[in-house]
Every structure is written in structure tokens, then in C-alpha cells.
Design a protein around this nucleic acid. Structure first.
Lengths: 137, 137
DNA sequence: CTGTATCCCCTATGATACTG
DNA sequence: CAGTATCATAGGGGATACAG
């Protein structure tokens, strides 16, 4: 693979410095998009929904250590960004199903690479950390 | 692309729930790896270093809105995880050059996809947000 | 069952000043 | 030039209780 993967100056004008433009930093569009994807629970929920649609309670059981508050909020953010479709079934009591949109599937296809990478390489990273921590005193 | 990209239950046992194992949550290895990659400044700095090595001050100018503290800290974290090599040149005053390691290049190759996706699709995401905000009152 | 509403805390980040 | 140290702060995130 070519090591000149990107032209850093060009990208960073978009991703980084360009943010000065209007009302300060958060205005850089790419940064905004990426940072909601990179949220603590986003990739985990996308991973689940990439397999099949899930109901709220199912997701809760699937990810036992997420709080109800963060599950609601993360799903809402994913829905807001257009990755997730929320459908309410008027059963009694009501049930709500979450599924990926086309945009969501497209996004996850790109997100997937780095998740796989982490799964494959976490031993190497752990080793690097151990080495670093040992050599610094 | 196959929509069954992952087997959610399997992945989440690793990525999510498995964390119960030892001392609570942060123990899940994949989560640890991914969350340092997903830090606020990590991908931006990786993007820069993927182009060529940079000195500390160069990175500072390239990313004007990062604080010196966070630049130091993020580079240190990236170095600790084995993505970045730090080389000190005994000039006067000293200069320090940062470059990607092989592990770093490998990681960035996988991270790159989602960064590109964000660049390509931020208009669609912005549109989705606008729609969502309009329709909720 | 699927959320909202509160309260609270802690960590990530920033601003500033100082040092080898 | 390349950091470190210190202090301050905002907001992400958890726990709990309540509601439709």
C-alpha cells in the first residue's frame, strides 16, 4: 500500500483547520460526522444492527453494560444522523424496532474495517503498551 | 455487500459483554484499542503522519486548534500503542520527529475507510440531521 | 416495554505559565 | 523547540426514579 495515503495538508484543511470559518471549531463537517460515529457506544450498536433489526430491550440485553439513558441517546443520535430507522409497533405494551438504513449500512461497511483491525491486532497493541510502560519507568 | 457483515452476538461477546470478566468494563481489549483510536485528535494526527513524518511544531501549525497539552498527550498515547515512532535529534535546540510505525500504517489503512466515508457523505448526514430536527418540533 | 427526568460525578480537554 | 505542571471547566456518562 502506498504510504502517501492522503495529502495531509489538503485533508486537514477540511477536517481540521477549516473549522475556524464560522462559529469556531465544531463547525467542521467531517469532524462532526466522525465524532458521532466514534462515540463510546455507536460502533457497538451499529455492529449489532448490522446483523439484524433489534428491539430496544433486546439491545439492552445484548449490551448489558450500557445504561438505559445512553442506549436511548445513542440510538437517537444514530437515527438523527440517518444511520438508523426507528419503527414503533402499536402493540400493548408498545414495541420499537431499530434497523439500519441504507446510509447506515454504507457507513458501517466503512467503519467495519477498523473494528476488524482492532479485533485482529489487539494483542500487538497490548504488547506495545507493555513495552512502552516498561521502558519509561 | 452482504448485510450479515458480522455475527453481532459473537462480536459483542468480545467487544462488549466480555468486559465483565475481570475488573469491570474497560477490560475488553477491542474496546480499549478502538477507543484510543477514536479519540478526538487521534485520527487527525494519524492522517497527518500517514503523509510523512512531522516534527512537533509542524504538527502544531498543521492543526492550529489543538492545545499543546493535547498534542503531547495524543502523540504519547499513539506512541504507547505502537502506532507512532518518536525520534529525538540532539540538535540545539532539540527537535523531535514523529512517524508512523508499520503497525501504525496498518492501522491507518483500516481507519482510512471511515474517514473517507465521512468526507464523501457529510452532506447526506447533514441533510438527515436537518430533516430529523425539523420533524420533531 | 420504551422511554424521560434528575441528579451527580468524573474524565477528557483547554488555558496558562514554567522548564531543559 | 519541545515539552511539563497546574488549575479550571464542560459535558459525557452513570444511577435512580418516574411515566405513557
Amino acid at each position: 500500500m502506498d504510504s502517501r495515503i492522503v495529502d495531509a495538508r489538503t485533508k486537514i484543511e477540511i477536517y481540521g483547520a477549516l473549522s475556524e470559518g464560522q462559529g469556531g471549531l465544531g463547525d467542521c463537517p467531517i469532524r462532526n460526522v466522525v465524532q458521532s460515529i466514534f462515540g463510546k457506544w455507536s460502533s457497538l450498536l451499529m455492529m449489532a444492527l448490522a446483523e439484524r433489526p433489534y428491539r430496544f430491550g433486546e439491545l439492552r440485553r445484548l449490551v448489558p453494560d450500557i445504561s438505559q439513558r445512553m442506549l436511548t441517546q445513542t440510538l437517537r443520535d444514530l437515527q438523527r444522523d440517518g444511520y438508523v430507522h426507528r419503527e414503533v409497533f402499536p402493540t400493548k405494551p408498545p414495541s420499537v424496532e431499530y434497523s439500519l438504513t441504507d446510509l447506515g449500512r454504507s457507513m458501517f461497511a466503512s467503519l467495519h474495517h477498523i473494528l476488524l483491525w482492532a479485533e485482529t491486532n489487539f494483542e500487538a497493541v497490548r504488547a506495545a503498551r507493555t513495552r512502552f510502560d516498561a521502558s519509561e519507568g
